[in-house]
Simulated assay, not measured.
Amino acid sequence: MDSVTLRPFRADDTLWLVERHGTLYAEAEGFDDSFAPLVAEILGAFIADHDPTCERGWIAEEAGQRLGSIFCVRLDETTAKLRLFLLVPEARGRGLGRRLLDTCMGFARDKGYTQMQLWTHESHRAACALYAATGWQLTDSKPVHSFGVDLVEQTWKITL
C-alpha cells in the first residue's frame, strides 16, 4: 500500500467516479440506473460550489490507476459530512479504506469541525464495520426502496 497515493480530487475524475459508482453498485447491490446520475449531481455540486478552505475530495491512486475516493463536505458550522467513499474491489483488504477514512476525518478535525456524519446502507457491511471500529455510532436506520431495490438506510455520526 506504500505505493498508493492520496491526491486531491480533480474535475477530470468525475466521469470515472460516476461510472465506478454506477457499475460497482449495480453489480454488488443490484442498483438501477438512477444511482449514477445521483453521484454525478453530487460531484457537479461539489465542483461548482465547494469551499476549498473547509471541503475536500481525495482520489486514491496507484501506478496511475484510480482505486477509490472519499469526500469531506460542510454540513454546517460544526459538522462535516463524509461522502462518496468508494474502493474498487481489487483495492479492498489492503488497509486503504482505513487510510482514506483517517485522512478525511483528520482533515475535518484540522478544519475545526467537531463532528461528522454520513449516510449509507446496511448492506455495505465492510464499510459499516470500519465505521464502527473507528468510533462512529449508528444513529438511525430505516427500510427504504431506493435505486430499484429494498435497502436499509443508515445514518452514522462521530464526535471528532
Rank of each mutant, 00 (worst) to 15 (best):
F46T: 01
E55N: 04
D33H: 12
A60S: 13
D51H: 01
R66W: 03
T78M: 08
G64I: 11
A45R: 12
D76G: 13
E55Q: 13
L43A: 03
E41M: 09
V39C: 04
T78W: 10
P37R: 07
A48R: 10
V39K: 05
V39A: 04
F31E: 05
I42R: 08
G44E: 08
I70G: 15
G44F: 10
C54Y: 01
A36Q: 01
C72A: 15
A45L: 10
S69F: 15
E61R: 11
F35E: 09
L38P: 00
E62N: 05
G68V: 09
G64F: 14
T78F: 09
I42P: 00
I59T: 13
C72I: 15
E41S: 14
A36D: 01
F35P: 05
I70A: 15
F71M: 07
F35H: 14
D32V: 12
A40T: 04
I42A: 02
L38E: 12
A63M: 01
T78P: 00
G57E: 02
A36F: 05
R56L: 08
I70E: 07
I42K: 04
D76H: 15
E61Y: 08
A36S: 07
E61P: 03
Q65I: 05
S34I: 01
L38M: 13
E62T: 03
E41H: 12
